[in-house]
Nucleic acid binder design. Structure first.
Lengths: 219, 219
DNA sequence: AGTAACTGACTGACCAGTCAGTTAGTAGGC
DNA sequence: GCCTACTAACTGACTGGTCAGTCAGTTACT
C-alpha cells in the first residue's frame, strides 16, 4: 500500500507540509466544497478556495485545469455517492411501496448527513455549464424512476402507454417534489428525518386526495 | 471637437425617438426580459441589455439604480402577473378538485404563454440576492397553498394538526413538483397543455399508488 | 430658455489563468 | 552519515479581459 508513512494527524500545527498529489487533491476538493457551499459558484473566487485549502491559487491549476473543472469534479464526487446510496437502497428492497420508502430514506439520509453537499448540488448552480450538468443528472434520476415505474407496471400486468410522456412527467414531478422538500428541510433542520420521509410518502404515494380526506400512509 | 460630424446613420432603426420616461422604462424592462432569459443573470452584461433596448447603458441608470434592481423589477412584474392569474382562477372555482385543477390550468397557461418569463423566474437565478427573493416568493406560494388546504380541511371538518409542519411539507412538494414539471415542459413544448395538467392532477391529486394501479383521474 | 431624455468615454475593482522561479523531499554515490 | 543532483510540490507577482457604475456633457421637445 503506498504506505502512508505518517498520518499527518498533527495537522493542527501549521505544518507547512508537502503532500503527495493525491492527498493535496483531496484537501483542495474539500476546501472547494465548503467554499462553494457557503457562497455559491460565481461569488467564490479561486483565491478564496486556495486560501481555505492553505495553498496558492497556482497550485489549484496543477490539479484542475479550470474553475469549472474543479467545481464539476467536486460535484461529481458527491453525486456519485448519492446515486450509489439510493440505487443500493432501492435494489435491496421489495418492489412497490417498500422500494419507494427505501429510496426516500436513502435520499433524505444523504441530505441529512451531508447538508453542505446537498446545498451545493442543487441550490448553487450559477454557471450555465454547471447547470446543464445538473440538469443532465436530474434527467438521469428521472429516467431511473421511469425504469422502476415501468417494471412495476409490468409486474402488475399493466402499463401506461397511452401518453408516451406520461411516466416521464410523473417522474419529473417526483424529482422536483423531493428536491423541493429537501431544500425546505435544509432550512428547517429541526424536523426529524422520519417525518420528512413520511410527508414524502404521503404526498407522492397516497396522493393529495386522500391527504385531504385526512388519511395518512400506514396510519 | 470630435463631435459626431457625420450622423451615425442608424440604418436599422429609423425611430431614434425620444420617449417619455415611462415608455422608455417599458422598453428597457422588455429588453431585460429577453436578454436575461437568453443568457441568465451573470452572463448578461448591462451593455447587452442596453444594446437590445437601443439605448446607452447610462440611460439604464436613469431608470434603475443597479443591475439587481433592474432584474428584480422585471421579475416582480411577471411574478405579479402569475400570482394574479392563479389566485383569480382559484378564487373563482369550487373548493376541492375543481379548485386545484383551476389553479394548475392557470399556472401552466402562464408557462405556455410566457415561456421566456417562466424561464427567467426559476431557472436563471444566478445571483444569491435574487435567489433569496425567489425563495421568498416560493414560500409565499407555499403559504397560500397551506391556507387553501387548511380551509379545505376545515370545510370537511378535519385537520392535520398532529405534525405542525406537515401541511407545509406537502405544499413545498406541490410547488416543487409543479416547478419541475414546468421546466420539463419548457424542453418538451410539443406536449399539449392538457396532458401536462392531467399529469399534474394525476400525480398531486390521486397519488402514486393509484397511478401504479393504472388509474387516472377522471378516467 | 429650461429641462428631461439621452450619450460616449471613462475608471476602478475583480478575478481566472499564467509564469518564472523557489523549496522540500528523495534516491544514489561515497 | 553527508553531500549532490533530480524532481515534484509549491509560490508570489503578474496580466489581460470583463463589467458595473459614473460623469461631463449634448440633444430634442415644450
Amino acid at each position: 500500500m503506498t504506505s502512508i508513512t505518517e498520518k499527518k494527524k498533527a495537522a493542527t500545527a501549521p505544518t507547512r507540509s508537502r503532500m503527495t498529489a493525491a492527498d493535496r487533491r483531496e484537501v483542495i476538493l474539500d476546501a472547494a466544497r465548503t467554499a462553494f457551499a457557503d457562497t455559491g459558484y460565481h461569488e467564490t473566487s479561486l483565491d478564496a478556495v486556495a486560501e481555505r485549502a492553505g495553498v496558492s491559487k497556482a497550485l489549484l491549476y496543477e490539479h484542475f485545469s479550470s474553475k469549472r473543472e474543479l467545481y464539476v469534479a467536486m460535484l461529481e464526487m458527491h453525486v456519485h455517492e448519492l446515486v450509489e446510496r439510493i440505487s443500493g437502497a432501492v435494489a435491496g428492497a421489495e418492489p412497490g411501496e417498500p422500494r419507494m420508502r427505501a429510496g426516500l430514506e436513502a435520499f433524505f439520509g444523504f441530505v441529512e448527513e451531508r447538508r453542505g453537499a446537498w446545498r451545493i448540488m442543487f441550490r448553487n448552480a450559477g454557471d450555465p455549464d454547471v447547470a446543464v450538468r445538473l440538469d443532465r443528472l436530474r434527467d438521469e434520476v428521472a429516467a431511473a424512476i421511469v425504469q422502476l415505474m415501468s417494471e412495476e407496471a409490468e409486474r402488475r400486468g399493466l402499463g401506461f402507454p397511452k401518453l408516451p410522456q406520461f411516466v416521464e412527467m410523473i417522474a419529473q414531478q417526483m424529482v422536483g417534489a423531493m428536491q423541493s422538500l429537501a431544500d425546505w428541510w435544509d432550512l428547517h433542520q429541526k424536523v426529524p428525518k422520519d417525518e420528512v420521509v413520511q410527508a414524502a410518502m404521503d404526498f407522492a404515494w397516497i396522493g393529495q386526495e386522500r391527504i385531504s380526506r385526512g388519511e395518512r400512509w400506514s396510519g
